[in-house]
Each structure stands twice: as C-alpha cells, then as structure tokens.
C-alpha cells in the first residue's frame, strides 16, 4: 500500500495544519461523546436520583425491541434508498460531464437546488404533495379517477421519506461525483479514443474506476446519513403521527428518550451502540470498496 504523501521525516509539522481542526473537533465531537459514555454508565430517575449502574443500560439496549426494530427499519431504508439515490446521482453526473447535454450548467444548478431547501420548508412542500385529502395526491386521484395509496400511511411512510431524501440529496451527491469526474486528465480520454473506445467503454474503463474513491466515500456518508435518519421523519411526524412512531429510527428513538422521557442515560447508551454499529458497517464497506480493484 503506497503512502502517497511526501515521505518526509516524521515530524510534528503536519499537526500545525491539522491541529486547529482537531482542537475544535475535540470540543464539539469528542468531548460530548466522552460525556455520553460517562452518562451511559449511570441512571437518573425522577424519584430516587442518580446511581451508578455499570453496563446495565447496554444490556437493556441490546434486548430492547424498540431499538432493534428501528435499526431494522433504517437498514431496509439503507439498502433500498441509498443505491437508488447514488445511481441517479451518478447517471446525472455522467450525463453532465459527457458534455452532451443542452444547457448542462442549468442542469447542474437546478438539480443541486433541493439541497439548499431548509428541512422545515421541504416538509411543508412534501406534506402538501402527499396530502390525501386536499393535497396533490388528492387532486391526482380526483383528476384521473385513480386511488393512489395514502403515502402517509404506515405501509408507505418509509417510501415517502425515502423519496424526500432522494430529492434532497441526489444533487449533493451528483456534485461530488461531478467534481471527481472533472479531475480526470484529458489525456486518458484521448488515448481511449485512439483505441476506438465508445462512450460506454470510456465510462466503464476510465470514469468509474477514477471516481471510485468518491463513490466509496459518498456511500459511507450515505450509510451514516441513513443510520442517523432524523430530520425528515421528525418533521413528517406532525402529519403522520401514527405511522411515524417515537421509535421509528434509532436517532428519533434516542432523541425522544432524552427529550420526552428525560432518560438521558439510556439515550446516550443507544447513541453509543448505534455509533459502534455504524462504524463497523462503514468500515466493512470501506474495506470492500477498496479491495476489489
């Protein structure tokens, strides 16, 4: 495994650049995590106060059906939504990069635009779209005499959330792929053209391998994003309170534990367990993503 950085004498010089980031990082990430681990070893009750309970909270989390069913839900979300979103993002990035689109910069701006919409606003808009009584869904049903299912019902809600996420983040991922594609040296294409390679061949032989790193990273961050699913369900909850339960996703569960139930200790435990699971999966994906070259 080649280390591509300059093989200088190992020194502390690099820390002068990395240091400022790590200091702030320690304050806003590491310290709260350490504090959470500390919290997870205690239990505070409304009556009886705080006591040290060792690993009891972890034991409870590992046998908590709410936690596992929420994990199952985001896993399902992960294996369906993330591939769809990344696939669309990749297609669009390739299309824009191919230079064969009319008005490609317009496409680039517009498809990225949803990422700029605040979650509150996105929920308002999609809430309207999904409305089965007076919303767009109702209008479509009226107009065409269809009876499309209620997208806010328990059986459809995960798909509806997936749609919002896809809408929000396709452009974001597209931009990452696109900027990775832009770093491919033109000389590679020229030699491919001399070999008589077609557009499709150029994609599979040059473009995809070249942006593999970006693909792996986008996947890892999407996995983390799916496991931390929170904003969209929490806002849609106001419209579909029965479909989106308080333990709908692990993150929502942890949030409600601490904010509705003041179970700060158990909430911290759930967060830590979830963090470990996410890390393991991200690590596995990263290993697999880089091994098959």
């Amino acid at each position: 495994m080649a280390e591509l950085a300059v093989r200088r004498r190992r020194s502390w010089t690099g820390w002068r650049f990395v240091g400022p980031f790590m200091v702030v990082f320690a304050l806003v990430f590491l310290a709260p995590i350490a504090y959470s681990i500390y919290l997870s070893l205690f239990k505070t009750r409304l009556i009886g106060g705080t006591s040290f309970v060792g690993l009891d909270n972890y034991q409870q989390a590992l046998t908590d059906p709410s936690f596992w069913s929420s994990l199952g839900r985001v896993s399902l979300f992960l294996v369906v939504q993330v591939p769809i979103m990344l696939f669309i993002a990749l297609l669009v990035a390739l299309a824009i990069d191919s230079g064969r689109l009319h008005g490609s910069s317009f496409f680039r701006v517009t498809i990225f635009l949803p990422y700029a919409v605040p979650a509150v606003v996105a929920a308002l808009m999609w809430g309207f779209m999904y409305g089965s009584q007076f919303g767009l869904l109702a209008s479509i049903n009226d107009q065409f005499g269809w009876s499309l299912p209620d997208l806010l019902s328990p059986s459809w809600i995960l798909a509806s959330i997936g749609n919002i996420n896809t809408w929000e983040f396709t452009g974001y991922n597209m931009l990452i792929f696109y900027s990775a594609l832009r770093t491919i040296p033109g000389s590679l294409y020229e030699s491919a053209e001399i070999d008589g390679a077609g557009e499709f061949r150029k994609i599979t032989a040059i473009k995809l391998p070249a942006i593999r790193g970006a693909l792996v990273v986008a996947t890892i961050f999407s996995i983390i994003g799916s496991f931390q699913l929170f904003n969209e369900p929490s806002i849609l909850q106001q419209l579909a309170p029965n479909a989106i339960t308080t333990d709908f996703t692990p993150n929502l569960y942890a949030y409600n534990l601490s904010f509705s139930g003041q179970q700060y200790n158990y909430s911290a435990t759930v967060a830590i367990v979830m963090g470990i699971i996410t890390m393991v999966i991200a690590y596995v994906v990263q290993l697999r993503g880089t091994k098959e070259r």
Partner: peptide, 17 residues
C-alpha cells in the same frame, strides 16, 4: 477518529453538548 465520531448520532449528542 473523525469518521468514528461522525458515526455517533449527532441528535443524541445534543443533550451532552
């Protein structure tokens, strides 16, 4: 460390933070 820390759900860290 960075990727590991990012994996811990941020909303759950809200109270400690």
């Amino acid at each position: 460390i960075v990727i590991g820390a990012v994996a811990v759900p941020g909303t759950a860290l809200a109270v400690p933070t």
